[in-house]
Amino acid sequence: MTLEWMAWTLPTAAFFLTIFCMLVCMTIWQMASPSIPRRGFLPISTTRGDRLFIGLLGSAYIHLAWLGFTDLSIWIAFPIAIVWMIVVMRFG
């Protein structure tokens, strides 16, 4: 069976590999030290997994907004999304 029909590219493979690694790390972290729901600046009580989901979804929207509203390089949105992820995971 060939995976040619999936039309893989290096950037998309790297993207999925990063997401996969994040999930594996989160699973190991959860097993080592189970997450307790807490409340930060987000208006809801969240676990670590919730905050990862919110961070990833927010990052996707940051990139989309960047593409939709500006003509600047997408690479400027990338560090903004990383800062957003860190802020949500730490203070969310």
Binding site: E4, W5, M6, A7, W8, T9, P11, T12, F15, F16
Partner: peptide, 14 residues
């Protein structure tokens, strides 16, 4: 995953 792959490419055929 396939949809993500297609979204960054111009697909002309197999």
């Amino acid at each position: 995953m396939t949809v993500v792959n297609y979204s960054v490419q111009d697909i002309f055929g197999p």
